[in-house]
């Protein structure tokens, strides 16, 4: 069967990449119509959708980014640190309507199946206790799976966000060697993310391998500091209910804040907080708020220096 010549378009197996519901109207597809019609007499008249609902890959990103360029949130951390759990917890909280309702409202997502897949582990289902989401497997991809959310802010503006769900191994390889072969996905995150959440796993930092956990996190912080080019960073302590030796905490903080003095610090946990009333974990909403409030850095033009207010003479005047 004839296929579309655009490399990012998989018509006729999926929808037209350029958004034509009727393929015959697409300028790239034109001319293939007759050929396709004769070859496939069984062509269905069903309409396909340009998004599958699963985590978004690079090819599908065009559909999400067509409306507004989404803010890419890079979640960076070693394996088993809780990156996917953080995403799952956020999705569950948004499902309960906890998004800071006065400031913004949930306005959709094109990766519901992806969100549901990570969040389902934390749900009670018949025959299953909640558990941590499964390990994000490293398939050596070029880019991480992206999970999408859109919010409408109080001033009626739609903002899109994509969150990276990348395996921790990528970042560990990348921390050691910037050009590591299997660190390509980590390099993608480093290049494209608009802000970074550096995940510090308190459980690993107090566990039997605390020394190597500290070492690899320090390396990662150093790598991130040299790659971030001024983009915002937050140091996120996950599993904040686990106690860590004060010296360990200081060592991590020194490594992160020493290299990136403007980094914000958050502690999160899905364990219930001490006051019984809140069923929203600890610190998760504060971190979500900060993440959603962060803006891409903008170019600020120099104000015009002039002594005359008449616009005709504004620029020539001294």
């Amino acid at each position: 069967m004839a296929a579309c010549s655009r490399p990012t378009c998989f018509a006729p197996e999926s929808t037209c990449d350029l958004g034509h519901l009727d393929r015959g109207k697409c300028p790239v597809w034109k001319g293939r119509v007759e050929e396709a019609a004769t070859q496939s007499g069984t062509a269905t008249d069903e309409l396909l959708l340009p998004w599958s609902g699963s985590a978004i890959g690079l090819v599908d990103l065009g559909f999400i980014a067509g409306r507004t360029k989404p803010l890419v949130v890079g979640i960076v951390g070693p394996q088993n640190a809780g990156k996917t759990t953080l995403l799952a917890a956020w999705y569950l909280l948004i499902g309960r309507g906890l998004t800071g309702a006065d400031r913004r409202r949930f306005a959709g997502s094109y990766s519901f199946a992806g969100w549901e897949a990570v969040a389902s582990a934390l749900r009670w289902t018949p025959g299953h206790y909640p558990s941590f989401p499964p390990h994000t497997t490293s398939r050596g991809g070029r880019a991480p799976g992206l999970l999408h959310l859109a919010f409408r802010t109080a001033n009626e503006e739609v903002r899109g966000y994509t969150f990276t769900d990348a395996p921790g191994e990528w970042f560990q390889k990348w921390a050691v060697n910037r050009e590591a072969v299997d660190g390509e996905g980590a390099r993608w995150v480093a290049e494209h993310a608009d802000l970074f959440l550096l995940i510090a796993d308190r459980e690993a930092l107090s566990g039997p391998n605390m020394g190597s956990a500290r070492g690899s996190l320090q390396l990662l912080a150093r790598r991130l500091a040299s790659e971030r080019a001024g983009r915002p960073v937050a140091l996120v302590w996950t599993k904040s209910d686990v106690a860590v030796a004060p010296e360990m905490e200081r060592a991590i903080r020194d490594a992160v804040l020493g290299a990136m003095p403007d980094a914000r610090e958050f502690s999160v946990s899905i364990a219930p907080s001490d006051d019984e009333t809140a069923d929203e974990g600890q610190g998760l909403l504060q971190l979500l708020n900060w993440t959603l409030e962060t803006r891409r850095e903008r170019v600020v033009l120099q104000p015009v220096q002039a002594s005359i207010s008449d616009p005709l003479f504004l620029f020539g005047a001294r």
Binding site: G95, R96, F112, A113, W124, H128, Y129, P130, S131, D279
Partner: peptide, 29 residues
């Protein structure tokens, strides 16, 4: 909206989920 780890906390959440477990998409989604 089914119960989750926030609405019905579990004191000790241990172990990771089984991969490829069938995911029930929530009604809202």
């Amino acid at each position: 909206v089914s119960d989750d780890i926030f609405s019905r906390p579990l004191s000790t959440l241990k172990g990771t989920g089984i991969e490829n477990r069938e995911v029930q998409v929530s009604d809202q989604a």
